[in-house]
Write a protein that binds this DNA or RNA. Structure first.
Lengths: 218, 218
DNA sequence: CGTTCGATTGAGCTTTCTCAAGCACAGTGG
DNA sequence: CCACTGTGCTTGAGAAAGCTCAATCGAACG
């Protein structure tokens, strides 16, 4: 029904997939759940997060159409996945997926490639969380989203934000209030414009890059 | 001469490996360098880090004997690797390694498994960096080191710290001063003892776990 | 319209950082 | 054998970034 990975020679896999729809706010699975399926996002947007026992939350990533969701250790989900907007996914039973992977060495390699990319992204996020200021975090966040949009849709200055301020805060290791304040500051400096609450226009990408990449003195 | 991965059926690979020695403080490679080799640590300890243009540093991980070092995107290193103590590694040319992997499907799977584990560790570190207090970060750090030591050497209360306070700080997203102060606090609470500057004894593992896992009110 | 919920703004506070001084230990040379 | 020196660690005091709590705003929806 739908494809799970981007590999061109995997079209045959489409026949094995089921479709699943999620309403905004609905969880796909929880941290600790047995990971007996693998997914590809086909529509919408999800957030992935981990919770501390007292409720503090860290969002470890956002998923958009085309993203693969199924890397797991010991067949157990390491995070919760929840729809931020009405979403559609394609899924396979994991054991069937494993069989399929066994039969297709290229797919194994593709899977590894995806994991390596996610690892590199996680390392960049560690730098952000450990060492960047609030302004730098927001700037990096927007540049990352922009790069992602432009990869599929070509050059643009508009970014859609399917996530709330709280989600952004929990992704960047800040509070929603700080996110609001930094957005206000970036607006007043004419670096961004808020077309709507959930839609940002990047007015000055160079200034944003300056702020985002830790070039020392502003 | 030495093995790169833990897979038992890969003993034959040992014949392909070269040995490399590093003095404490010596870099193995830098972020951005072409990644034309893969490594396994056989002795010593390394730190992996990324720098911001202005010099701020985030250590993304530490490597100990048995650890594999070679996951890369686009054959480029995403971080710098530097010896924290005199170290020994085993290495292969990456292209030869790739050929070998092609010929051994199990190895490909093992590689994926390693990447998945590292990704899970990176996600836990994001929670630490984004949401934990200084005390919680140190507690989690010690518990992680302890678990790692115990995995190979059985139950113990002693942890060796081959890294400096600055390294710990740059791993936990703190300053060396804060690390020192938190250590002093944990000492005065009789939760840990400093056998030497680079050697910690865990006196009260439960208290450490309480502090480390975000159980809210202390 | 009134309500609701997320976003924004404000004020004061806390944690952690910064800067600076002091300490301890290892290595060196008198 | 012991001062001397360098380096990393610790401790202190003040500053700052970001957090908390609280009030207000504003768009969406009945």
């Amino acid at each position: 029904m739908c494809r799970v990975l981007g590999c061109d020679d995997l079209a045959s896999m489409r026949r094995l997939g089921w479709t699943l729809n999620l309403r905004s706010g609905q969880p796909l699975f929880h941290e600790g759940d047995p990971a007996n399926r693998v997914f590809t996002v086909t529509r919408g947007a999800l957030k992935l997060y981990k919770l501390l026992p007292d409720g503090r939350r860290q969002i470890t990533g956002f998923m958009f159409p085309g993203d693969f969701l199924g890397i797991a250790v010991d067949d157990e989900h390491a995070f919760t996945a929840e729809a931020m907007a009405d979403s559609q996914l394609c899924w396979f039973p994991r054991n069937r997926f494993s069989d399929f992977v066994d039969a297709h060495p290229n797919l194994e390699r593709e899977l590894y490639r995806i994991a390596a990319h996610e690892l590199a992204a996680a390392q960049r996020q560690m730098v952000l969380l450990g060492r960047k200021t609030a302004t730098e975090r927001l700037a990096s966040f927007f540049l990352g989203l922009l790069a992602r949009v432009e990869k599929t849709e070509g050059p643009t200055r508009m970014i859609d934000l399917p996530m709330s301020r709280l989600d952004i805060a929990d992704y960047l290791g800040l509070t929603k209030e700080t996110v609001s304040r930094v957005l206000a500051a970036l607006k007043s400096k004419r670096i961004i414009r808020l077309d709507a609450l959930d839609r940002v226009e990047v007015l000055d990408r160079l200034a944003l890059a300056d702020q985002g990449e830790g070039n020392g003195a502003e």
